[in-house]
Design a protein around this nucleic acid. Structure first.
Lengths: 398, 398
DNA sequence: GCCACTTAATTGACAGCAACAAAAAAAGAC
DNA sequence: GTCTTTTTTTGTTGCTGTCAATTAAGTGGC
């Protein structure tokens, strides 16, 4: 694919080194030897062709010059701009696109409204979006797409996407044909996890859980350094963990699932029951901040439900780090102008934590919990991260 | 270790082939090539030294002679008796020991009562048990030990074992010193999972959950073909999944955990509350079978709790197969004379399944659920399986 | 009964890769 | 200015598995 720089047939060691550097940014050769488990000699030989291909760069930087004995190590860095990728998050309302470099830093972004959900229409829009972002950037060589639903990353097929109403769409092939770029497709939450894993808090961590709170509760899991896919395509359904058998009815048919209590729909419905009709989730948070008892109660319940859900993840998987995110989770109003309208009710934060601490068993309570707002750029960046991963692992192959 | 047959420095391919055969029993060379991803030529070269070392055997058997074209494949089998291992399950009451061959078939078994829980005392008893089983079996070359609690398999240390009252006992080293045999230590439930994984239902499956129902609820998880250890040593705590916030108090401080409802202690306590004091778990099952309403209710609740717990596992992990086992789970009274007194109340079975089906989300309901009685031999066999795995992976190394 | 066909297993040649070990490079210390 | 100390490089070596051709061992056609 995209044979811009004739791929110099990387050795296994070369791929390992390249991966390591893309993920860590820079390192001395000795550090690389330590981290990859290869011999210093092997590193030298692995690095050379990558330098020649322009993928790596030897900056004059010296590592830790402060009084260290011996020959100072010279740092090797990724030439992050050498290859660029476009990441697109597909929703029923909008397409969010970003251009990222190899270190997954966002260079440019764009949002496009979506009207027609038909696969052909959306694929056309994706192609246009890609062409637009690609203009004047010859380094762009691959595309990553993130879609909610049942996605087979290996084949690039979208088996089923409820929000888009898609069934068995060979999205990867179609976009690759239209754009001429190597295309990677992944489930949106797993894509987000991939981004977080290599370029966020997940660095150096082998078990990580990512929970997105919104209309539904999404979740992707990293266990033993591997993304969990589930035998039947289902995994990470923390939204249907039981919280209260007497709780509100969930669309899955049971009562008291996390999603029924903490999902936006459930929250708004219970506010409506309390007499507050037609609110948005941000309004509920505002009410809660101003002390309105119903809003406080509903959000506290939501927070406790999420806390119970993540405690279950911690108890079962021993996740080292748990990130909770969503349009609906934020720090404070007006903090940082994200692309999406980020409503915030960190009102939930203490309730999440207290419920987690209460239900986490033994050492599982040591899991680090992080709540953070999520902007749509992050979704697109996750898609880009998948494309980068694909590029790096397949560089000089297939 | 145990250099009986001078290990002929196995190549990586050799180890892969050996592993594959120990796990599958026998295969033609072509099948091996397919399953290991190696070239036919590599297989030939890998198999030869193993044949010479007496670890493999070429039986005259031909695979599928029925009208198949071409040269018939000759089967290669493990010489299962070439190396034997002893597996020991350590409990506060008894030691259960087995001798197994490389295919993990039980050749002999023995039970020893335990009086003194002090590490030295138990290690002495283990050494005696091993010597006894070893007598007249020169093929015995390694020992596997299964202990409940926090075990570090890599170092062979038992960090903490509540039932034995052990803290940081270097069990592996000590037993290796006493017996002169290579020794492997593993958490008991994980050992059971290992046995099941390679020699039971787990063959060819990459995600498997094993739940043991007894005094406590134990659980070991296989995800993506790897055993989950948990970042802080905690994982698989399905016993503390929330079932009912109004439920009975659990020793973890919360209400309505699976363990509080389905653990033996909880069951007996609730029977006592109903006026049935001093029962054993088998008595409760008998009462339920004879239609006693309280027993029926308590066991139904227990079954539903377990069902909810495994549904949570299925929802989060997408486990392909879930095995529920325990002294307390059985088929019918008097079926097969196991070593432990196996009480049975398959009374729970329908309740487990219905609760599971109700709470499993979407395709997660496709997980295969299996309830089966557990005899103590199985625990010991799990320990043996760990020893076999260690032997196979380290053969011709370290 | 011989020959073509098919599949299994073997073998020799080959090439690639990384480990090993020793030397060169680049500092700071004395 | 030499001596450490650490990083990096460079031959050399050994091993391993792929490749492709060959041999082996059957079945079925004629």
């Amino acid at each position: 694919m995209s044979a811009r720089t004739a791929a110099p047939a990387l050795s296994p060691a070369g791929t390992r080194v390249f991966q390591q550097l893309v993920r860590s940014g820079d390192a001395s050769r000795t550090a690389l030897a330590r981290d990859t488990g290869l011999t210093p000699g092997a590193i030298t030989r692995a690095v050379r062709p990558l330098l020649e291909a322009g993928l790596l760069l030897e900056t004059g930087d010296r590592a830790s010059t402060d009084g260290a004995l011996g020959r100072p190590a010279t740092m090797v860095t990724v030439q992050a701009g050498a290859h660029q990728v476009i990441g697109v998050k597909i929703t029923a309302d909008q397409l969010f696109g970003v251009v990222c470099d190899l270190r997954c830093r966002v260079l440019d972004e764009v949002t496009v409204p979506v009207a027609d959900h038909a696969p052909e229409a959306i694929i056309g829009q994706i192609a246009d979006l890609v062409e637009g972002l690609r203009a004047g950037r010859p380094e762009v060589g691959s595309v990553g797409l993130a879609v909610s639903g049942d996605v087979d990353a290996a084949s690039g097929h979208v088996a089923y996407s409820p929000f888009l109403g898609w069934h068995d769409v060979p999205l990867g092939e179609l976009v690759a044909q239209r754009t001429g770029l190597a295309t990677t497709v992944e489930n949106d939450v797993r894509a987000l996890l991939t981004g977080e894993r290599w370029y966020g808090v997940g660095r150096g961590i082998s078990s990580l859980a990512l929970v997105t709170v919104g209309t539904g509760i999404g979740c992707a899991l990293l266990v033993n350094g591997q993304v969990v896919h589930g035998s039947f395509g289902v995994a990470g359904e923390v939204g249907h963990v039981l919280v209260d058998p007497e709780g509100p009815l969930c669309h899955c048919g049971n009562r008291g699932c996390v999603e029924a209590i903490a999902g936006s729909a459930g929250i708004l419905e219970r506010m409506a029951q309390a007499g507050f009709e037609g609110l948005g989730i941000g309004d509920v948070a505002d009410l809660a901040r101003s002390g309105q008892p119903d809003a406080v109660r509903v959000l506290a319940e939501a927070g406790r439900a999420v806390g119970t859900g993540i405690a279950t993840i911690a108890n079962l998987l021993g996740a080292q780090h748990i990130v909770i995110t969503g349009e609906a989770i934020g720090s404070s109003p007006g903090a940082g102008a994200g692309s999406g309208g980020e409503q915030d009710y960190d009102v939930m934060d203490p309730h999440v934590r207290s419920a987690f601490e209460q239900r986490a068993f033994g050492s599982a309570a040591r899991s680090e919990i992080e709540l953070r707002p999520l902007r749509f750029v992050d979704w697109a960046r996750g898609a880009a991260a998948c494309a980068v991963e694909d590029f790096v692992t397949h560089y000089g192959r297939s």
